[in-house]
Design a protein around this nucleic acid. Structure first.
Lengths: 340, 340
DNA sequence: TTGTAAGCGTTATCAT
DNA sequence: ATGATAACGCTTACAA
């Protein structure tokens, strides 16, 4: 017969409210759903009864009955990257305004974990915000196949059933490199990020394009973390370049620290650029030249798109958020140019 | 009659599996719950049927029937603080191992939001991890009163119904200050953090204690962010101190950047200490003297405690994680000591 | 406008 | 060891 008491020991239910107010449970449900078509008198009585009992709708029961949980999932490759927690923070805020809670998961850059966590999130969530997914398109399609809206950030996709919000990496990156060229650099090294990252591919593509214009471009595989940048300082110096373009701010910061430890001066001995404009970059010494994207704007666009999808809107929208380089003190002309 | 299809359009239910396997739904439920007492033969048939149909238990229905959601809430005052997202990241990991998902919320340092978000989280979650709560004890008790386990981090409490995990701020802070005293500093300034933060009170109390030993201690209200530290550089200089003890790494970094902009050298013109040992501190220039606590250890302890509570364990446990100062390059003897 | 009642997909009690 | 079935607390056709 009766299952255990799942609630907090005698928490009032919709039936108690209905009884006290002298109405049916349907009416109480309608009042709390805010649906029109309930008389002012009954609405008042329901509220009075609910207040008296301290009634709050049971969200899990609501979810089961309605098929909506008012939860969205958010999956990022690395919560320790300021780019992602900034996104999360903003989405948390916007979603909260609309009555949604956010289940967060971190794949730690693992495509396999990405798939599992994504599926697991979709068991509960009404929709999924997938940040910079590293998974193959087939896996993404599998996630979408669960029948719930999926919004992809930081990765361009052709799939018409997912909406995407991306930052325009290409243009800003080219401006950044042009800046280095204008300063007189003739040999730059690129610190590669995670291979499966779409952003990485975009950034590298933009830089690589400069080879055709006579810029010498060396490559050093690194990663997307401070540690990765710190680790590869030796390899960078071996290239003999005068400037480094890092995949992101984190690896740029790590590299700068390592160069500093070796007694090199930035930007005098080496110019360094990052990407993302994380808050710390502005306060580094020297402050970091980087590329800024309004993450608030991106996150708001993402939530707006997600909300549209949750309300039944058609997927496939593509939002592109503009990016622009921010020139600070970590870049200058190469020493040879000064003394030459 | 039938409500709408809440599921993804014809998703198999436990009944379909039972029918195909030729058993009752109760047996299917038992098999998936891993409960002993189902014959090997039926277990096999259930799994075969489930695989054939691609059946996965409906987590929301499970939640309603069992009263457990396998979700925990985690509420932090500021997701942009590395201290907190490190905690979240680790809890995400540990909780995930145990099959729990994590609902994250950010109160933005607002006690009112803390209460609302906490209550809202507890509607769904089996338990709540409350990080560095700024709310009054009464509010915390209200949250606990919802009948679900609450674990408080970064704040000491007397309440026997909540378990706590705190870092030992007092001892490490005193070592840090002693270090400054040993270096010859006679006048230090404290950059205050958020007034309602327990950690802030602990840190300040430890430093203030040095007044009795003849140390001159000035105070500047700041906050817990990079911007806060950056903003108050002028006030700091007006005190005439030779060293600054900041509430945390973030405000220390902000202050250092501001001092740098004014042409001051650290540590030559001013020693600066932080607190938390966030990853960036090691890679700053100069690297930041701070206090390290194993956040992995703290987070693991927190999850372990939470899991115990979720399994019905008695609350009230107090875990204290050790902290120790990390001396790096942002501290040195005062200039007057050198030239004097 | 309001009420009735059939689900939603499980779990867990009770009987066998 | 297995099955039948009443909850869990709500939403939403459908009837009135």
């Amino acid at each position: 017969m009766a299952a255990q008491r799942g609630n907090g020991g005698g928490r009032p239910t919709i039936r108690n409210v209905a009884a006290l107010a002298g109405v049916s449970v349907a009416t109480v449900s309608r009042v709390f759903a805010g649906s029109a078509g309930v008389s002012a008198e009954l609405t008042r009585r329901v509220h009075a009864a609910a207040d008296e009992l301290g009634y709050r709708p049971h969200v899990v029961a609501q979810s089961l009955a309605s098929g909506r949980s008012n939860i969205v999932g958010m999956l990022v490759p690395n919560l320790a990257n300021p780019h992602f927690y900034t996104l999360i923070k903003q989405v948390l805020h916007d979603a909260g305004r609309d009555g949604y809670q956010v289940l967060v998961a971190d794949s730690d850059e693992s495509p396999a974990a990405e798939r599992d966590l994504g599926l697991s999130l979709l068991e509960r969530a009404d929709g999924l915000v997938l940040c910079a997914p590293r998974s193959a398109p087939g896996v993404l399609r599998e996630l979408v196949g669960r029948g719930r809206p999926v919004l992809v950030m930081d990765r361009k996709l052709d799939d018409p059933v997912v909406s995407t919000v991306v930052m325009d990496a290409h243009g800003a990156m080219r401006e950044l490199v042009q800046h280095l060229v204008d300063l007189g650099h003739e040999h730059v090294t690129y610190l590669h990020g995670p291979a499966r990252s779409w952003q990485e591919q975009e950034r590298w593509r933009a830089l690589r394009g400069y080879r055709r214009r006579g810029l010498r471009v060396s490559e050093v595989p690194a990663g997307a973390t401070v540690e990765a940048g710190h680790r590869v300082a030796g390899q960078v110096l071996e290239t003999g370049c005068t400037a480094v373009v890092a995949h992101n701010d984190l690896s740029a910061i790590g590299l700068m620290a390592a160069l500093d430890e070796r007694g090199l001066r930035i930007p005098d001995d080496m110019s360094v650029t990052g990407y993302d404009d994380i808050p710390f970059g502005r306060f580094m010494s020297p402050s970091l030249t980087t590329v800024h994207t309004s993450q608030e704007e991106a996150a708001s666009a993402a939530w707006q798109a997600m909300r549209g999808l949750l309300e039944g809107g058609r997927p496939g929208a593509r939002t592109v958020v503009a990016s622009e380089p921010v020139f600070r003190r970590s870049t200058a002309g190469p020493r040879s140019a000064e003394s030459g």
